[in-house]
Design a protein around this nucleic acid. Structure first.
Lengths: 134, 134
DNA sequence: GTTGACCTTCTTGTCACTGGAAGGATTAAG
DNA sequence: CTTAATCCTTCCAGTGACAAGAAGGTCAAC
């Protein structure tokens, strides 16, 4: 199957598939007589696996480890667990950050009752020290 | 005052200050006889304002509007409010996304009781369709 | 006079793609 | 059989918001 079909089946953009190959997340793909990339069912499975991990926002470099670990059935599972936990921690930290941000923005929003910028309470508050994120 | 002092006073990296100037967030800075950039108190105030907005993760392009609106005291405050609300919405959406992500990662984490990859439950689950983010 | 701390510009790298141009191959329709 | 549309290929540029580093100029202190 050619790259566009692989893209549809894996639900990854063909450009992205080429990019994954270029950066080494995928091994060099088999080519047919015309030099077109040829994909089989195993390739599609791998692509889907990769898509799921990317949906979990696992960075490509970590994903490389997962893909390599996957092919070496003897390697330890701890590495896999570690990557997931690291990702979990990153996500939790980011949530906290964003919640703080939401609070601040919420305080700012609609805080201006005037018409022109000269009296704007939002700009006012943004110029005060209190608005600093702690 | 030269760029390093301005950086310290505004708490923005000097590299970043030059970058802001380059992309047009800041007007071309005054230079002294040697071609060194010269900053005054007004510049510092503007830099601090910019830093606060960036801490609220307002994108530079939106920030340009805020900075321009600020200098034109007659312009409407609605634009300012709009930017803040847009940012608030973005932040809220992102929080929701990340919370979903956290759930999924949490389910995955520590779900493997085996030693080697061949029996790894995490990789197993990542290969199943159920793990798809809805 | 030389050391070290500044300053300047320019280039490159980050991350994960996305878009487009230029050129060749295949396929379907007329 | 020709033509048009749709593939495929590679390469290059852009995104956002900087950070890092190189090469070279300037300045103050000792």
């Amino acid at each position: 199957m050619k790259i566009n079909d692989a893209a549809k089946r894996s639900n990854i953009n063909s450009k992205t598939i080429r990019y994954y190959e270029e950066v080494g997340l995928l091994p060099p793909t088999n080519r047919n007589a015309n030099g077109y990339r040829e994909y089989g069912d195993t390739d599609i499975e791998r692509l889907i696996f990769i898509r799921r991990c990317r949906e979990l926002q696992i960075p490509i470099k970590e994903l490389m480890i997962l893909v390599n670990v996957q092919t070496d059935q003897q390697s330890s599972c701890l590495e896999v667990d570690d990557i997931i936990l690291k990702q979990l921690e990153k996500v939790r930290d980011r949530i906290k950050e964003l919640q703080q941000l939401e609070k601040t923005l919420n305080k700012l929003a609609h805080s201006c009752q005037f018409d022109t910028v000269s009296q704007c309470q939002i700009l006012q508050k943004l110029t005060e020290k209190q608005m600093l994120i702690p």
